[in-house]
Nucleic acid binder design. Sequence first.
DNA 1: CGGGTATATATCCTACTTGACATATGTCAA
DNA 2: TTGACATATGTCAAGTAGGATATATACCCG
Lengths: 106, 106
Amino acid sequence: MDAKKRKRLEAAGWAVGDTAAFLKLTPQEAALVEMRLALSRSLRERRLAAGLTQTALAKALGSSQSRVAKLEGGDPSVSLELLIRALLSVGASRKDVAHALARRVA
Amino acid sequence: MDAKKRKRLEAAGWAVGDTAAFLKLTPQEAALVEMRLALSRSLRERRLAAGLTQTALAKALGSSQSRVAKLEGGDPSVSLELLIRALLSVGASRKDVAHALARRVA
DNA sequence: CGGGTATATATCCTACTTGACATATGTCAA
DNA sequence: TTGACATATGTCAAGTAGGATATATACCCG
């Protein structure tokens, strides 16, 4: 039941700044947030590099433009699952995803 | 709406053998399955190495023993999200997760 | 044999994620 | 300005992953 609290915290307002210290996040919560952020950024970069619009990516992913915007915007309502699927959709390999995941973000 | 089909396929029976060729999976679908598998294995290893029972891990994760069993068993109903949270719960760092994610599995 | 512990599997109900849609903002060009 | 295109944001119904719980199987030891 601690995941609930986490969701709550995240929902509040993380998009800004250095996530860890600002809110009182456990290292694990922080890691999760950082991963999301790192994947979001990689997604946007890869999409742009591929010359795709959000709409085009959405279609390839079987999703909608609005959700792609949320993916890239780091919206708390998106899961790592979808983020990763999106990366695969823009041509990332498993290794690429792993690399993106570990990427420095702060 | 292609994700649906994927779910369907996965639900059928992948746990066995070399995933990719057996069912007709797209490279992306295969990558996803491999990632899940790789993370599952790392999770089990780390848990055992830490001398934890599924129940203990479940408590630390804020989940239940049954779900941990599914996480480790590669049940199609578990998300990468939870898998990653579980890894963090057994002390994995972001880098560790990335490494586990890319890990060879076949 | 019986009890204890660890894990696997099944079912239920809730809460979350998701796709779809509507709309807002912004940019560029005719 | 107007229209076309790209992206951001909000809402919501529907499907699904999640936690809880119960039960099954397996192992070990007394």
